[in-house]
Amino acid sequence: MHIDVFNGDADGIFSLIQLRKVKPIAATEQLLISGVKRDISLVQQVTTEQATNASITVLDISFDKNNTALEQVLAVADEVFYCDHHQATRLFQHPKLTAVIDTAPTVCTALLVNQYLKNAQPLWAVAAAFGDGLDKPAKALASQLGLSSEQQVQLKQLGMLVNYNGYGASKADLHFAPAALYQQLMTYDSPFAVIADAQSPFAALNAGYDADLAKARSCKPLSDNTAVLAVQLDNAPWAARISGSYGNILAAENPAKAVVVVTSNADDSLTISLRAPKNNPYGAADICSQFATGGGREGAAGINSLDRSELDVFLGLVAAKYV
């Protein structure tokens, strides 16, 4: 049995597509474990029975958030391949573990997988990088591949849409469950084939994205100064879906500012998306990790559940970091 554990956003899905295009696994031998983008403690969903004698791949989820569960599955699994770009301060070595970890703000998991596969399926990596808000690395790889400006725009749109689909409080908020979206996209030879097919998930995601973005644009900022732009979205499924994409858009529009997008949870806590300034893409994970459910990477991070009473404290930390 092969178990594929992956983040439900563009980076996680396109990373797995690259791997399975090059190293195919029969559907009958493949167990998929994924969730909404913020569901990052996914390795703990692998049971001891499932892990026994299994080959396991883990993509685009923080090593720090999964290291305890990883130690448990390594005790019984045949091997584990782990590739990620989030915080990994608890990284360890194990004879059964192959870890490709790079936390630099200029990489995402799909770019790391592309390097690992020696450029075997690079178009998916370009789309993933765009979806993760890494326009410069995405354009650099696209230029190496000789892609036209129009092709780059198409891959960016696909990446943004698949990334957008990963956000939600639960899978019920999403247009497509991540595992199902992966399975559908795997049937296409390339990202351009997905875009060209009117019956693919691309069209449905595009319509949903446009509607949700229009609602986000109508929300007034919590604060907007030289260092930080903070926006609070309504308490609704559309807000959870668009929060990450909107954060990326605002960050691109305001490269000198940190961007904070706040959404409400059912228990009255807050979900936080933080984008470090494009001109200074460091420190986001350090800020969010100071809170119990926070984490991420240098350029972008978040908090799954922040008490409302702590919002001013959080915004103060962001302002102090990027002033």
Rank of each mutant, 00 (worst) to 15 (best):
A216K: 07
A127F: 11
A26F: 06
D212W: 05
L205V: 11
A198T: 15
Q72M: 14
S245Y: 04
E71V: 09
F92I: 13
I101T: 11
A266H: 14
G294T: 07
Y246A: 02
L42C: 04
L213H: 03
K139G: 05
S243I: 13
I287S: 00
V5G: 01
A236I: 06
T57Y: 00
S289G: 14
A256R: 14
T98D: 13
V46W: 02
P277W: 01
Y246Q: 03
A230K: 01
D307K: 15
I40W: 08
L315P: 06
D267E: 05
D267M: 07
K139T: 15
A142L: 10
S289H: 07
L181P: 02
S245H: 04
D312Q: 13
V80Y: 02
E79W: 07
A236H: 12
V153G: 04
P201H: 04
K37H: 14
V231M: 02
A292C: 03
E150L: 13
L222Q: 07
V5Q: 00
A251P: 05
A227K: 08
A69Y: 05
G208P: 09
S245E: 03
D60S: 07
Y164P: 10
V80H: 05
V153K: 13
R90Q: 15
I13Q: 01
Q121G: 00
D234I: 11
R90W: 05
I249L: 11
Q144A: 12
G35L: 08
R90M: 10
G131Q: 03
N235I: 10
D286W: 06
L158Y: 12
Q121K: 12
C288P: 12
L315K: 06
A252H: 10
L147Q: 07
P178W: 00
Y164K: 11
A240Q: 15
K171M: 02
C108W: 02
Q72N: 15
S55P: 00
D307N: 15
I249R: 08
G299W: 10
P24C: 02
R308P: 11
E29S: 15
S309H: 14
L181S: 01
N225H: 12
C288R: 06
N165C: 11
D307V: 14
L123F: 13
V153F: 02
F176C: 02
L161S: 03
